[in-house]
């Protein structure tokens, strides 16, 4: 039967016969297919010429396509095509597009930047990106901070002052908040009296008798609280001493504590142990003056400023 089939068909065989009658048809590829294959070969040759292709020694053949960019040190580099250089080129272009805005920022006073609708739009977007890259790890994405660690930038209380100049100063030089541990110089009873007094200042449930004693102690030279917190307990901004009379708590987690006793305990902890963690780094060497100026206006706007 296979004889019959072989006779009836017209397809050429390869001419070989295995095991007597086993033959192989020779069906050529369609011409268009072959030509497409040749075209891909040509394409590959062109591609190798233009783009990086083959490993060669310890490097590779780079191809004729080159990218020139300015790196972060300000040096102009030319490199054969690669995606990192492509990214640098894109970043250069983005920086060039932002430059007119940053130039304007450095030329304009703070108030004028904040009142110019176009610049304000730039501050809102560029400031947001800068804040997210540099500030958000501590102060959180929205600037709300973390109680007992990092100040909230969106409220109306400013430890070191909320004017443009003081915010700028804070950003440039950084800050270091410090409070001695009064547990080492006062006894437990005195610390408790002070805690009750501080609670009384912002209307938190407290022991009136202890608070009265605390009041005396607060203004005495034994505890000397008033040196930094002032005798009105509103805090000295040049020292970064917090206002104790308002509803905002940074170090003692009063809002989260339950009941008068718990809130007083939270305050007591801060007085007894003191603070040595209110550190904000200086940004003057890390960000450009224009970037710091953008952040100043952005942060000022977060909390409404002063």
């Amino acid at each position: 039967m296979s004889e019959q089939k072989l006779q009836s068909q017209t397809v050429q065989t390869t001419g070989h016969a295995w095991d007597g009658d086993l033959q192989e048809y020779n069906n050529p590829l369609p011409a268009w297919w072959v030509y497409t294959f040749y075209a891909t070969v040509v394409f590959a040759l062109v591609y190798w010429t233009i783009y990086p292709s083959w490993p060669f020694g310890k490097g590779w053949i780079g191809g004729v396509s080159q990218i020139t960019y300015v790196n972060s040190e300000g040096e102009t580099k030319t490199h054969s095509w690669n995606t990192r250089a492509l990214l640098m080129e894109d970043l250069n272009q983005a920086a060039a597009a932002q430059k007119p805005y940053f130039d304007k920022v450095s030329a304009m006073p703070y108030e004028q930047i904040a009142k110019d609708p176009e610049m304000n739009g730039f501050i809102l977007s560029a400031g947001k990106a800068l804040f997210a890259d540099n500030c958000a790890p501590c102060h959180q994405a929205g600037g709300q901070g973390v109680v007992s660690f990092f100040p909230n930038l969106t409220d109306d209380d400013w430890l070191y002052g909320g004017s443009y100049d003081t915010i700028h100063e804070t950003l440039m030089g950084g800050r270091r908040g410090y409070m001695p541990a009064f547990g080492e110089v006062l006894d437990g009873e005195q610390v408790d009296q002070l805690a009750n007094y501080v609670a009384s200042l912002s209307g938190i449930e407290h022991d009136a008798g202890k608070a009265a004693a605390g009041n005396v102690l607060f203004h005495s030279d034994t505890a000397a609280c008033y040196y930094c917190h002032t005798s009105e307990a509103t805090g000295r901004k040049d020292m970064g001493a917090p206002n104790l009379t308002d509803n905002i708590w940074l170090w003692a987690d009063v809002p989260a504590a339950t009941g008068g006793e718990g809130k007083v305990a939270a305050i007591r902890g801060v007085i007894a142990n003191g603070l040595n963690k209110g550190v904000m780094p200086a940004w003057s060497g890390r960000l450009s003056p224009e970037q710091i100026k953008v952040l100043t206006v952005y942060v000022h706007e977060l909390g409404g400023g002063q």
């Binding site: 809102l124 959180q140 994405a141 929205g142 600037g143 709300q144 909230n152 969106t154 409220d155 109306d156 209380d157 206002n243 308002d246 509803n247 905002i248 809002p255 909390g303």
Partner: peptide, 20 residues
Amino acid sequence: QIRQPLYVVLSNGDIRNRYQ
């Protein structure tokens, strides 16, 4: 509404929400 934070308690106890 700005969601981070959703609200801010101000020094006199007022509540502030911000919007873009």
